[in-house]
Simulated assay, not measured.
Amino acid sequence: MGPDDINNERMSELMGADVTLVTTSRIGDGLVGLNLRVGLECADPAVPSSVVIKLPSLDETSRATGMALRNYEREVKFYLGVADTVDIRVPHCHHGEWHESSGDFILVLEDMAPAEQGNQVTGCSPEMAVAAVEELAKLHAPRWDDPTLDDLDWLGGRSTPEDIAAVVGLWAMFLPSFLETYTHHLDAPQLDMLNAFGERIEGWMNGRNGPKTVTHGDYRLDNLLFGDGTAAPRVTAVDWQTPGHGSPVVDLSYFCGAGLVPEERRTHDRALVRSYVSALGIGGVDADEAWVWEQYRRETFAGVVMAVIASQVVGESERSEAMFAAMATRHLQHAIDLDSLALT
């Protein structure tokens, strides 16, 4: 399924009304999926004037990754089965399909314009970071330690022996090629931290404990849309290709570690954790701030793992290298600043 399949007939079928396409444009970088903004004309006032359509990536490597890692399947199932059970702001899903035999999928989503996408390369302001972590708590709180999540076997992020073995194997496989591309972006302490952590990755994953909930799995600036709170919500979370059932603090540390440049993040680490804990309280979860802080320090490495592995399984571009370089350097510096290795 690709952009050429999006025509008047197909859109009329998906929207349940006679519609005419008036504009089609690509939005975002879409490392694993392809995002299109489609302008519509329709006599039915219930049909919006524009929607965002998400399709498999046109890049063969990225498409193969999306299928192999079940990204396409999980995103459709999140929108159809989980989105309405959590409070985080996500685009309304007008239609979703995933075909197991071909791996194809399509999502027709609410267009969140004039909200603007965050920028993982440049980072964000402390004010944007506070809004993002408060919104994150609205994902985690509603299904905090919910045992029924065990029944959703398509959710990822679980630290089973098989999952741990897979991550350890992928790390060993991809670290050499990662270093070929990204070593020149890293300073000596960051390289030392990368190598030291690689020797402890299995114990680090085995050591996770505490409550579990629905997680985003890739909660970062490129996957967040920011608005003024009136014409568009303050924060909308998109790209639900890696939803999981695991430690909530992974999302928190992952966002903060690369969302802010290190100079800003050092100043605001503690305050952001407090904002998150306070927002959980509003959602009915009484979390111990000391425990959250310890887990926050420990989970700085989640971003390191993502940078090493994900950078090697998606299509390459100048933007993707800049993004993964920013992630790798910032997450490693986060681990250095918080002495995270001591908790592995």
Rank of each mutant, 00 (worst) to 15 (best):
D29S: 15
D29P: 01
L252A: 05
D150C: 09
P126S: 07
S311Q: 08
D111C: 04
H92P: 00
T85F: 01
T230K: 10
A307W: 04
V19R: 10
W291Q: 00
L338S: 06
G203P: 04
A258T: 09
R63A: 15
S12C: 14
D59R: 06
N206G: 14
D104R: 04
I106K: 14
T148K: 09
E289Y: 06
D87K: 02
G66E: 02
R266F: 11
G30I: 13
E180C: 02
A279M: 03
L332D: 14
G229Q: 06
T61R: 00
V47I: 14
R319W: 14
C42G: 04
G246H: 11
V304D: 05
L139G: 13
V314E: 14
M205T: 02
H99M: 07
M67T: 15
I27T: 15
A290Y: 10
S275N: 08
Y72N: 04
D222N: 15
D5K: 10
K138V: 00
F255D: 07
A290M: 10
Y79D: 02
G123H: 07
C124M: 07
D239P: 00
W293C: 09
G30M: 13
L149K: 05
K212Q: 03
V308H: 00
Q241K: 02
L260Y: 04
M67A: 15
I282S: 06
N209I: 08
A335I: 03
E202C: 07
V86K: 03
P91M: 00
N206D: 04
D228T: 01
P161W: 01
L36S: 06
F178A: 02
E162R: 01
D339E: 11
Y254K: 13
R70T: 14
A166L: 11
G118V: 08
Q120L: 09
R158A: 11
G284V: 13
C42A: 13
D218L: 04
L58M: 09
L332A: 14
V273G: 00
R297Q: 15
M205D: 05
G156S: 12
H95V: 13
L170C: 01
M193G: 10
L40T: 04
N7D: 15
N209S: 15
E316N: 10
R74L: 09
G227F: 07
V130N: 01
C256K: 08
I164D: 10
P243L: 12
F255C: 01
L34W: 02
Q333R: 03
F301V: 11
M205Y: 01
H92E: 12
F255R: 01
W154H: 12
E41R: 12
Y254A: 09
G157M: 06
P91C: 02
D5Q: 13
A129M: 05
V214S: 11
G33V: 14
T61G: 06
Q333K: 04
H92D: 10
D59Q: 14
G198S: 07
V292A: 07
T61H: 00
G284M: 02
L136P: 11
D286A: 15
E75G: 06
G33T: 15
F255N: 05
T181F: 02
T183E: 12
D146T: 11
M306Y: 13
T181C: 06
G39N: 10
L194P: 03
S340M: 07
G229L: 07
S49A: 05
P262S: 05
